[in-house]
Simulated scan of single mutants.
Amino acid sequence: MALASVFGTNLFHYDPKGVVEFYEAYPAVRASFEQAARWTELEVEPLLYQNGTYENETLRIRAVSVGLAAAQLGIQDVLADKGLLPDVVGGLSLGGLVASCVAGAVERQDLMRMLAEADHDPEPADAGRPEGLASAYLTPGFDPDRYYGERREGVFLSADFGYDAQGRVRITMLSGYRDALEKLAAEEPEGLVNVTEGADLAVHSPLREHLREVTRAQVAPVVFQDPRLPLCSCLEQRTLGTAEEVREMFVDNVVKPISLVHLNEELRRHETELALVVGPSPVMNALRYPFPAVFVDSPAAVAQAVAAVFEHGVRLRRA
């Protein structure tokens, strides 16, 4: 009988309305943004409203990452103040790094500084071949080799989100070379594979391999601790139990595909009875979970989370 806190993936563009409402309603969220701004030498307003102007794409992605992490941690603090302390945590991509903070494996200040200094390297692995992303909506029983894998040159599985809430389609994110993604989209029925406009980084794919050692050098001076809570990985179905495993997750997160399926199965193994999906995440809110889930993306959802704890008989742990 466990309560889980789950944190969503990075969002290169998102509507900050719910986060702004949290910021205005709760001192804990304001404190989280103020800390993030102080630690990274960024300003609160662009972190909160996502309205900054930046010299290049790397600087913009860094600011978005810091702002979203500040929002997720601040909202988690609001839940903790209500007594909703998780027994187990996990997240997707950026959310996995935030979950590491909540589990006590890395200090918030260190996470914010790493996000503010991350090298996203906008240059493609092949200078003559632009990269890209695509969303794919696949029917049950689909052949993965048709979309990615050895038979599909230049396309990789970047994220497996599992099935939509109705269980009708499997939602995935593909990454790779833009020409290969566009070729795949043209071969499929309209709307099945959609190449994302304005996305030019093949995230969570082998094309980011050159950043693995860059990231390893970045995290080398950071002090990691053994997690105090079960920390479920989204890179494979396992629970991270040591400081070194968490450090390696930070490095692998740059290259390996992420999977909500892996994360959910591991959360279920820890007897999760209710999950609180913390912060803005339109994709996460549209998915199927093997346990009840409350999407805490606006202040109104805090009361829903408290009610769900009582409805499902979740026994809360003490700090």
Score class of each variant (00 low, 15 high):
Q237F: 00
G241E: 14
V203P: 00
R152W: 05
S158K: 01
A199T: 03
E245R: 00
P227R: 07
D179S: 14
T215P: 02
D145R: 10
E236W: 11
L235N: 06
G162F: 04
P230I: 06
S233N: 05
D226Y: 06
R228M: 09
P227T: 03
R151Q: 14
S175G: 15
D164Q: 10
L174P: 07
V169D: 08
V169R: 14
R208E: 13
R238A: 15
D160Y: 01
Y163C: 12
R178G: 06
E187C: 09
A185C: 05
P221N: 08
R168H: 11
T215Y: 04
S205C: 01
L240D: 00
S175W: 03
Y177M: 11
A217D: 14
V222I: 15
A180I: 01
E197Q: 15
R151W: 13
P230Y: 00
R238N: 06
R238F: 04
P221D: 04
Q225P: 00
A243N: 05
E150F: 09
V169N: 07
E187F: 12
R178K: 15
R178L: 07
Y163W: 13
E209I: 10
N194D: 12
L231P: 01
L181R: 08
R170Y: 09
Q237G: 08
L211I: 09
R238S: 14
V193Q: 04
F224R: 01
L240M: 08
P221K: 03
D160S: 03
F156T: 03
R170T: 07
Q166F: 12
A159I: 01
G154N: 11
E197H: 14
G176A: 09
S158D: 03
T196P: 00
V219A: 03
L211N: 12
I171H: 13
R212G: 10
E209K: 11
